[in-house]
Simulated scan of single mutants.
Amino acid sequence: MWDKVAPELSVTHRVVRWDLPGHGGSAADLIGPGATVADLAGLVLDLADSLGLERFAYAGVSLGGAVGLHLALHHPGRLSSLAVICSSAHFNGSGPWEERAALVRREGLARLADQADTRWFTPGFSVPGLVADHRAADPAAYAACCDALGAFDVRERLPEIAVRTLLIAGREDPATPPAHLREIADAVPGAALVELPGASHLAPAQCPEAVLTALRTHLDGPAKRGMEVRRQVLGDAHVDRAQSRQNAFTARYQDFISRYAWGEIWTDPTLSRRERSMITLTALVAHGHYDELAMHVRAARRNGLTPEEIGAVLLQTAVYCGVPAANSAFATAQRVLAEEEPVLAEDEAQDGADTGDTPGRPGR
């Protein structure tokens, strides 16, 4: 289903795909009769844990989208963002799903596989590989997934979702029509909704470019905000130099820095930028990264630290990181502050002209 989307996303993101139990490479006995969406969400978290992924962006289609809603409600700290595609907060009650589960347990998947194209796509469109995968799925595991869909209903809890959320609807989707996605978008604070004309239930397979565009915009939100913060803290000149040196080899690293370090860590309101600058200076001294230290001394000035406060931070490092490290740190900081002094003096003079205060007064 993601074959035409995942490779493109993987240029700038690490992409992990998972199969439903009994589908593709997943064992059928991972779930059984009476399974719930919570069971599937638990398997996703187990997978993430096994890969060392503490937080991740999640995107899911249909039942996969329901798994995402469950994660957002019960494990919000694990998600950096959520995309729910051609899915719903409920799947019209348990009755139809009980009937389908009974049919599959009795007859297998042949009849449903013969009808797959009409359930999944608009007339005349087909992805034979998806239909073949459907036909090859384990009937017991498929029926257990039907049990999960029948029992799922989180409509009353949608306003509790605080994860940044994108909804993608296929306008021609008979299984989870756009109204189902609008219901989620209206209830989840700040959620965005995209409706794709000409798309049915498996939109990533039928309209991969449109889904890719929506996901990129959604996923790159932190990168855009991170780039803004990065420029505010480090200055345009430094960031422009870094961007000009970017190539195919370093592009993913630059995206990681903007999205994670600057878009998530530096934007966290728990600590002020002044506090983050002090912590960063200390860490750079501790590891002997004096070129980076010079850059962050300038950043600390932009974040409001005075030369006296920067000196106090470096004096603290002498106690806990060692005198030799502090010697080098003071030399680096003194050089940077000396280079910055003419600019600072000009700024102070201007402040004095504007306010009537005396330029260069103590405490500036």
Results as ranks from 00 to 15, higher is better:
155 R>F: 09
156 E>W: 00
156 E>H: 12
159 P>A: 08
161 I>S: 03
161 I>V: 15
165 T>D: 04
166 L>N: 10
169 A>G: 09
171 R>K: 13
177 P>C: 01
179 A>H: 13
181 L>S: 12
183 E>A: 14
183 E>W: 00
185 A>R: 02
185 A>S: 12
187 A>V: 09
192 A>K: 12
195 E>R: 02
195 E>W: 08
197 P>E: 13
197 P>Y: 06
198 G>H: 07
200 S>Y: 10
201 H>Y: 10
202 L>H: 05
202 L>Q: 02
204 P>Q: 02
206 Q>G: 05
212 L>D: 06
212 L>I: 12
212 L>G: 01
212 L>W: 07
215 L>I: 08
215 L>D: 07
217 T>Y: 10
224 K>T: 15
225 R>M: 09
225 R>F: 11
225 R>C: 11
226 G>Y: 02
226 G>T: 09
227 M>A: 15
228 E>S: 14
230 R>D: 03
230 R>G: 04
231 R>W: 00
236 D>L: 10
238 H>V: 15
239 V>N: 03
239 V>A: 06
240 D>M: 10
242 A>M: 15
243 Q>A: 14
247 N>A: 09
249 F>L: 14
249 F>R: 14
251 A>D: 11
255 D>A: 15
256 F>S: 09
256 F>Y: 14
256 F>V: 05
258 S>R: 07
258 S>L: 07
